[in-house]
Design a protein around this nucleic acid. Structure first.
Lengths: 185, 185, 185, 185
DNA sequence: AATGAATGAGATTTCATTCAT
DNA sequence: GATGAATGAAATCTCATTCAT
């Protein structure tokens, strides 16, 4: 319309808010996650949140979308590097045991996402999408049924980490993945 | 004065409230679970919630305690009936696939409990206890590492059910459990 | 349920709030009528308003219901006292010119109610009801068409009062009412 | 520098904004009329509202000024066409009953204007001016007291239309106007 | 022993207005 | 001349919790 092109003063603010939301969720849980806490964490004024997002639900949905995007990429990168089934088994064991994939923060967030998804159609759709991408990454190396079983391990073991003391024993994890890879078809 | 013993006029009210709380959590998630909704669901006056329970956190903790008690018993009963490892594998497959163990309501509640546990020391303790009892039930039939792997399957597969369409294929589940039982030690 | 009978601490609080709401509307208009202003005017805590009323719309609707109830009674009382058509004409003139019926406060409130009714089905229903009761009171003394015309005068003249300086000239009003009473049938 | 004359690149924008404001008021009421809704309706950027108008109050006042200007002209045109008192009575009846004068939109807006005028000196002045112009148009055909009574009818009857089902019966309206014209002096 | 009326703290959300560009 | 990103103030509303009875 002939006017000056308006550009955001702070072009990464959206992302900063979403990351702050994930931090607050990790620290407090979705229940006890509030606009105020997110705004404080992100260092932006309260009004900013509702300027960028239609409401808390929408904000959380986009934050979880960001989380699942990051996780899926990580996941895929780990499996794409494997040249045969045995390396793929090692990669899965690393995903389950490694500090990076499932740092405490990510474990917490994934479980919060599962929980929230049960009451949010939008986040449930994200969960389904994640599941499909995950199976797709696995399917390059394993039979269809093995993919499902290995995926269940990948979901289930981190939950134990949330209650157990340390990370799971890598040898055990690797043995379980291999047993499934070789004997489930 | 003297010998008058006061008795509650509604002795099951505590339990009714806890079950109502679980219903509300299943329907709405822990976030969006409120005193008012629980009271309405239980058909009891609002004031009785704070009369019986010190606060919402305490109420939720006791509700999850009730849930995990029921689930553990179920779990144990299923495994106690097995006379050899093969029957134990069948029992685990039933737990994972069966409608009873993981009805939609229970799946939702378990995930809500995991999520809440991450921010509540009391519920985290319940989770640890559940884990130990679960492994204990399994250890009658499987090696220690196999127990951990099978337990991960038991936790992980229901999560898929929350996003997938139907229950998992029983043959696949059974094959995975057997593979672990036989080859992880 | 066997408990003590609970009674409100302040049994007239509902009515006090509704009267305060009418005061605020009269002073500020429906736009600029807020929970805070009403609460301050009524001398009750803010939370009280949402305890007693589901929302501002509901509160305004009940306030206008209170207004129209009072006005209808006044109206009816004025006309019931008339023993013949001529006395009824005098009564109508009094309603239009009298300080009591249409004090500044009531004039303002009536117009605010008409205005709000256009965007609130509930208040529109109150308006219709008022109209019917008003015609009903008039119909004891005037022909059906005369009722409608006189009612239009009763609605229209106070609007002039809102803009004109003083009250309308009583002789003129009486002449108009009589002209309609005698010549419209 | 020197002779460059800046011209607005959208010369009718002011008027478009004012018409949009009237549309929003008609649809939502003055309460619930906001900058954002007006801008959206007018299809102009939000910032242009505060660029063209000092604030929402000023914008509303000018919108109502536009409304009353249009209505007064209509009014006057209708009465100027009458050649004698009887034709003037017909013209008044047309104004009250006709679809054009008091379409639903205009009825709503007039009442909103009365309501707003009670809390805005500027709009109250517009109202007084309207009243005077209206009486002036009438005074060519009716006695001074008759003008006031007829004007009251013109204000009052549309209010009934806001609550009644259909438009008023034209014969009744005409009879009332004639009764006043002939018998009030 | 039990309750529901009551409230204050804080949550979400709306919005007029400002201002850098 | 014009804009839309940005924000602070305040609005509505929710709710855990208190407490007189």
């Amino acid at each position: 319309m002939g006017g000056t092109r308006r550009v955001p003063n702070d072009p990464r603010r959206r992302e900063r808010i979403l990351d702050a939301a994930l931090d607050v969720i990790a620290a407090n849980g979705v229940h006890r996650t509030t606009h105020r806490r997110i705004a404080e964490r992100a260092g932006v004024p309260l009004g900013s949140l509702t300027y960028y997002f239609g409401g808390l639900d929408e904000l959380l949905e986009q934050a979880f979308a960001r989380l699942s995007e990051h996780m899926s990429q990580w996941y895929q990168a780990a499996l794409d590097g494997a040249r045969d089934q045995d390396e793929a088994c090692e990669a899965v064991a690393d995903l389950i045991c490694g500090q990076e994939y499932v740092s405490s923060r990510e474990t917490v967030l994934i479980i919060e996402m599962y929980s929230y998804a049960q009451h949010s159609p939008g986040v449930a759709a994200l969960g389904r999408q994640w599941l499909l991408r995950s199976r797709n990454s696995l399917s390059a190396h394993f039979s269809e049924p093995a993919c499902r079983a290995i995926d269940a391990l990948i979901e289930g073991w981190p939950i134990h980490r949330a209650f157990d003391e340390g990370p799971p024993d890598r040898a055990t994890v690797l043995a379980a993945v291999r047993a499934i890879a070789r004997h489930v078809r």
